[in-house]
Design a protein around this nucleic acid. Structure first.
Length: 874
DNA sequence: TGCTCCACGC
DNA sequence: GACGTACGTGGAGCAG
């Protein structure tokens, strides 16, 4: 058996873990995030790599031999935060419990220890794996030495092999140090050659191979400036290279055979986990031994279908690599069932009537990952997918809406299954993204199928434990089928109308542009905040109201304050407004209209927001203008898809505040809604202690802003911004509001306490959001978590309600045998298209269904309207 | 290509 | 007392 050595860059991994995770702490007030992250990585490595030898290297002390070469080496670094320093002793203790060797050496960095040992091990025939967060280590890569560099998360890594280095940089691993010599490294304060970045360094090294050769052949280097820079910084480059070079002959006092890994001391590890409060890891520790890892997989490439493949129950995966799945190619399928693992090339499936029959048979049950995507992609191929009975993606989202769901691997790895690689690894990214050869694609798709099928049971159990099964089966999954239909249906756009508006805008913009240039006395790019700032604040000497990180702020609220100071300002505001309409809405929408049908097909992301709301992309149809008349006209271009049909829109009135009234059971608020009062006026009356006819429009505006703040969980600062008052005044408002609505005040206090206690908050339909930062000692993090605790149940329950309404509505439309189609959802609003003759019945059933989606202690109210376009449905 | 600024909706 | 303060999508400019 080959010997396998794993070397971990201890400091680097501890840092990565510390910054990647929120500042957790255990019941004794010890911070544990770095320890926790370190443990996760350690467990993962032991499981994935099964090393025979292992060592964790640490940096020793502050100075190393490199400081003799360059005093400022690693200068300007932030001091290690005390919250991290205090965790190092525990990390050492952890390693001892795991019986993993650790080592540090005076005057040397962890890099040098790792370099020296990896070279020795390679010579002795070991396979070597290095784990770090520092890309410098990639210089060590050889056929036998692989370096894993952590990415954004903590357990997610890029594996650097010679091929990977070649692909990423176009260089050999040895050339990494030449690259550092040229470009320097700001994090280590290595200077390099000024003006030379990664691109230039790679170009030079591709041509000249080494830094020394570059410097010896300066005359051959293209570009006069570059030549000069290299000439001037010759010494500095050589020194930089020397600094970046890992010493592979450090005088270690430890030998390879001393770092043999024999397995961990489970008693000590358990004890330590208990002390640290790592309960989830304790569970994992227990199950780990039982779990078998699938290393190699086998599968069959299907060329013809049989009963064996198209079974009554299966995991079914369809791959779509294009950005959008509308009218997209499907690149292949996989099916996992009791008989085996199958890869089905796209054309085999799509040309098979047996496959179509199976896909459309609702008694053939399918476990999927992203059923909506699968359904829509297949619907464009004339296949109406039925029988989905479990969606792993949605289940994972319900269990934790705060995680990001990028591909099957990200979901399965989060649930401890690692049979599948990330799409980026298999397909590449950016310009390099491509479909691999059939066998590689097939294996990847089968692995996805296996991962989906592997995590299913775990997800089911967790949902059951959390009382969230109904949320999956009765709300989110049925909703996904409705969304699929909405997306596939699309909404018709009057292209000529959009173009006409565009022409009009172009003219207006031209006029404004001329006027602006005349006021400025010169022409410049009005769309550039930087150039605009120079004109307004340097040339015209207008007072600076606000600055951004990079210069003057020119945002609308700033410009509004300057409106009466100079005529140019009004024009700029107008130019901005129209420019936004032109670029985002006219040009943006025209770009995504399907030329054959004149329809727009958005995609709703059902697994993105932490509150349970949907989002809409490509295009975003949830932010079409409505506030200002000029923008609202865009809605005239959204029309019914058939002659004699109308657009029918219905929206909930004040749904979030009604939800708040319900959850908080606030007597005053409940009373207001039961009597159907104007809630902002009522709020103004109570907060300002005046009668209804004494409420001024300004008082109502302020009350409205406070209500808005409550709904969105903004801070006193946020409220002060939206009202243009001081923070203190805003705080005063909030205080008075809470004194008026005591039920709300109590709710706010209780929900925060509850979140602190349980670690999460939930909505009326059991949607959860975890708030680990609610116990943070960092004021910002904690305050944010507290506002989130107050806000998520409100916004999330409102999202639950409209989702439920969509399901009930689809059901009702079917029952009534109507042709009406649901097209869009905009958070508290549903937009349909309908034949004129169905309007009468819609006027009855739409409000009825929406208002009765759930029962609250206050009534829900729905307003509706219809017309020849979305604009007219107001 | 990735970041910043700005602006639209709820 | 400071901290940096609903969320989401997308376009334009700009630096490297």
């Amino acid at each position: 058996m080959t010997k396998k050595l794993v070397l971990i860059d201890g400091n680097s991994i501890a840092y990565r873990a510390f910054f990647a995770l929120p500042l957790l702490n255990n019941d004794k007030g010890v911070h544990t995030n770095a320890i926790y992250g370190f443990t996760m990585i350690l467990m993962k490595i032991l499981e994935d790599e099964k090393p025979t030898h292992m060592l964790v290297a640490f940096d020793a002390g502050k100075t190393t031999f490199r400081h003799k070469t360059f005093q400022e080496y690693k200068g300007g670094r932030q001091k290690t935060p005390p919250e991290l320093s205090e965790q190092f002793p525990f990390i050492r203790e952890l390693l001892d419990a795991y019986q993993v060797s650790r080592y540090e050496l005076e005057n040397y960095e962890a890099d040098d220890i790792i370099g020296t040992l990896s070279r020795q091990a390679e010579k002795d025939g070991y396979e070597v794996k290095v784990i770090s967060g520092d890309k410098d280590l990639t210089q060590l890569v050889t056929d036998k030495i692989t370096v894993d560099i952590t990415k954004k998360g903590i357990t997610d890594v890029d594996s650097y092999t010679p091929d990977f280095v070649q692909e990423k940089y176009g260089l050999t691993p040895e050339q990494i140090i030449d690259m550092k010599g040229l470009m320097g490294d700001t994090s280590d304060n290595i200077p390099g050659v000024p003006g030379v970045g990664e691109k230039t360094a790679i170009k030079l090294l591709t041509e000249f191979n080494t830094l020394e050769n570059v410097l010896a052949s300066i005359e051959k280097v293209g570009g006069k400036k570059l030549k000069e820079k290299l000439e001037e910084n010759r010494e500095q480059a050589i020194m930089s290279k020397k600094l970046a070079t890992i010493d592979c002959e450090a005088p270690l006092t430890i030998a390879l055979d001393e770092v043999h890994y024999e397995g961990f001391d489970s008693k000590k590890v358990t004890e330590l986990f208990k002390e640290l409060g790592f309960n989830s890891l304790l569970d994992k520790l227990g199950t780990e031994a039982a779990e078998e890892e699938i290393e190699d997989i086998s599968f069959e490439v299907v060329s013809e279908f049989s009963q064996e493949i198209l079974t009554d129950e299966a995991t079914f995966y369809a791959e779509v690599l294009e950005d959008s799945y509308h009218q997209a190619d499907i690149n292949g399928f996989s099916i996992i069932n009791q008989h085996g693992h199958y890869y089905i090339p796209a054309d085999i499936a799509l040309n098979s009537s047996q496959f179509k029959e199976w896909a459309e048979d609702e008694t053939k049950l399918k476990t999927v990952y992203d059923g909506k995507k699968t359904t829509v992609a297949l619907s464009w191929k004339g296949i109406s997918l039925k029988g989905i009975n479990f969606d792993v993606l949605i289940a994972a989202y319900i269990l934790n809406p705060s995680a990001t769901y990028e591909d099957v691997a990200s979901v399965s790895k989060a649930h401890g299954v690692s049979v599948v690689q990330h799409d980026e690894v298999v397909y590449g990214k950016g310009a390099k993204r491509s479909v691999p050869a059939s066998d590689k694609l097939g294996e990847h798709l089968v692995r996805k199928g296996l991962a989906i099928s592997d995590i299913k049971e775990k997800l089911i159990n967790q949902l059951e434990d959390n009382d969230q099964s109904a949320l999956l089966y009765d709300l989110e999954m049925p909703l996904s089928f409705i969304l699929a239909e909405m997306e596939a249906t699309g909404i018709k756009v009057d292209v000529d109308r959009l173009k006409e508006m565009g022409k009009n805008l172009t003219e207006q913009l031209k006029t404004l542009e001329e006027s602006i240039y005349a006021h400025a006395g010169e022409s410049f790019n009005i769309n550039s905040p930087k150039q605009l700032g120079v004109i307004l604040f340097d040339k015209l000497n207008l007072p600076v109201v606000k600055k951004t990180k990079t210069g003057y702020s020119t945002s609308a609220d700033v410009l509004e304050k300057l409106e009466d100071k100079h005529e140019i300002v009004k024009d700029i505001l107008h130019y901005r407004q129209l420019g936004k309409l032109q670029s985002t809405y006219i040009e943006g929408l025209l770009k995504v209209v399907h030329s054959d049908t004149q329809k727009i097909h958005t995609r709703f992301n059902q697994v993105l927001t932490t509150t349970g709301r949907l989002s809409s992309i490509d295009p975003n149809l949830q932010n079409i203008p409505i506030r200002l008349e000029e923008g609202k006209k865009i809605r005239q271009a959204f029309v019914p898809s058939k002659k004699d049909w109308v657009i029918f829109a219905a929206d909930y009135s004040q749904i979030e505040l009604r939800v708040l009234a319900h959850i908080a059971n606030d007597e005053n608020l409940v009373d207001a809604f039961q009597n159907d009062l104007d809630i902002h006026t009522k709020t103004a009356m109570d907060v300002f202690h005046v009668s209804e006819d004494e409420v001024t429009s300004n008082m109502r505006r302020q009350a409205k802003a406070v209500n808005f703040g409550i709904v969105y969980g903004i801070s006193d600062f946020g409220l002060s911004q939206s009202l243009g008052i001081t923070r203190k005044e805003a705080g005063e408002f909030i205080k008075r509001y809470l004194e008026t609505f005591v039920g709300v005040q109590e709710y706010m206090e209780d929900i925060v306490a509850d979140a602190r206690d349980k670690g999460f908050v939930k909505t009326i339909l059991q949607r959860r959001r975890y708030l680990p930062e609610i116990t943070s000692r960092n004021f910002n993090l904690r305050s944010f978590a507290e506002r989130t605790a107050m806000n998520t149940p409100i916004q999330g329950s409102a999202a639950d309600i409209i989702k439920k309404a969509m399901i009930d509505m689809a059901e009702r439309l079917k029952e009534e045998k109507l042709q009406t189609k649901l097209l869009l959802q905009v958070h508290d609003e549903l937009i349909f298209e309908a034949p004129k003759e169905e309007v009468a019945i819609l006027e009855k059933i739409v409000p009825e269904v929406m208002e009765n989606a759930v029962e609250l202690i206050v009534p829900l109210r729905v307003d509706y309207s219809y017309g020849n376009s979305w604009y007219d449905a107001k």
